[in-house]
Design a protein around this nucleic acid. Structure first.
Lengths: 249, 249
DNA sequence: CGGCGAGTTGAAGAGCTTCAAGCCTGGTGG
DNA sequence: CCACCAGGCTTGAAGCTCTTCAACTCGCCG
């Protein structure tokens, strides 16, 4: 049950038969549980396994010497980090939970076994990696060339789509919106803004009838218009490109 | 001779013996030549091969609907793109030369052959990929949390170090500085600034005796101080992490 | 010799930050 | 059970960084 997020995620990249699903459900790893706001990986730390998120949210981030913090990416259920451990490396950034989090810690040897066992899985993991890099690039465009208003709209739409893909646990999202367990400070640190300005823009988006906030939920009042304003184009998710490929092979 | 950039680059990730070097020098591909300011890959375009840069500079970038352009990364001799073609994808961004450029176009099948042929090479390519992602992350931090002055210093130091790694052709760089064939507009588009402001900050860095510009060259007057100001820490290049790993295996 | 791309400079203004203060909520301990 | 505290959210006012608009220079190529 708890591994469904990964299953749903991978299903987006490969047509899994029963045997494939079996392989995934039987991944050999150590269950891990982290409290809210807990450091999972410190920058500079040597990593020794791949962690698959089963439940909960986390952030990757880097801190400058003077304390300024930049959030690089948000980790949702079904996400993995850090594949780069497969070639061994120290992490050049930190990872920290924003909610309590359940994960599955998989040793590199086990992970390599998975990859050799199933070509389909290998392809799927490649795809997840390609997508992850695409998210980083989009983050660069957003923070480099968009206004605060555009950034926030774009960021929320990206998260929303990602949550819908994995289901991300019961009641995490629906047609109207989704649960966002991020503080405005975290959002600000992701988008290169101050929490104060982030707050002002969020309120303005509400006044403009583009979204509504309710008890940790973001509800979209007009997704089309918000996507237009923030120039959100889901192309970079590569959602159908890989399906076309599957058809060709 | 022309493939030396790749050789030098890979040598940073693996101790190559004569046989390995032979394999690299004999990579089966099609020589390609592009003029200055030429589109190599259009966003949305289907890719069918991996391109290895032998000579010249290029940029990866994305354009918003209204024409705003964000440069994601600079491609130097010894760099490759796009490995993701190995699992097949449309590109979600564009690539364009900034100088005339010589490249080697390698078909996915040939590339896969290389990977199966040499475990050392596989590891080295993984490393290049890890490093590429690290550059993207650093770009996010730079543009998200640093001032124009810091960004420009950091960006120039990053490029400088990268140029030194591959040699990047005769006379491309030395202890004092390096040749930067980027217009101020490109630098601005990489750093999320306007060309005008970029110009002002560059001039200010000169007035502050931190650097000197001469006919397309950037000369560092005080690298230590510039690195300090811009909080440039080469850690994210992962230059020795992999060497440690090599020693362990 | 004319024009184009790149660089440079000034002046005005917008967007975002900084500093400051108050509010609201949930959790904790007396 | 309620007082208190901490963290997150909200708002105002002032100011700074960076942008925008505009104009001029320089070198290069046709």
């Amino acid at each position: 049950m708890a591994r469904k997020a990964l299953l749903r995620r991978i299903s987006f990249y490969a047509d899994l038969d029963d045997a494939d699903q079996q392989v995934i459900m039987e991944i050999n790893g150590r269950d891990q549980h982290f409290e809210k706001n807990t450091e999972i990986i410190d920058a500079g730390q040597e990593m020794d396994s791949v962690l698959i998120v089963k439940e909960g949210w986390a952030i990757r981030y880097k801190t400058l010497e003077d304390g300024r913090r930049q959030v690089l990416n948000v980790l949702l259920p079904g996400d993995m980090f850090d594949l780069q451990v497969l070639v061994a490396a120290e992490s050049d950034h930190s990872v920290k939970t924003v909610t309590s989090l359940k994960g599955l810690s998989v040793r590199p040897s086990e992970f390599r076994r998975l990859l050799t066992e199933s070509g389909k899985l290998t392809l799927a993991f490649w795809w997840m990696q390609v997508q992850e890099e695409a998210f980083l690039r989009e983050q660069i465009v957003r923070n480099g060339k968009q206004t605060a208003r555009e950034r926030i709209g774009h960021f929320l739409l990206e998260l929303y789509r990602r949550v819908l893909i994995t289901g991300a646990g019961a009641g995490a999202g629906n047609e109207e919106g989704f649960r966002v367990p991020l503080t405005q400070t975290v959002i600000a640190d992701a988008l290169g803004l101050t929490p104060i300005h982030t707050n002002r823009v969020l309120r303005q988006l509400e006044r403009d009838d583009l979204l509504e906030r309710d008890n940790g939920w973001i509800l979209f009042k007009d997704q089309r218009r918000l996507a237009e304003i923030s120039q959100f184009d889901i192309g970079y998710f590569h959602l159908d490109a890989f399906r076309m490929r599957l058809g060709r092979e």
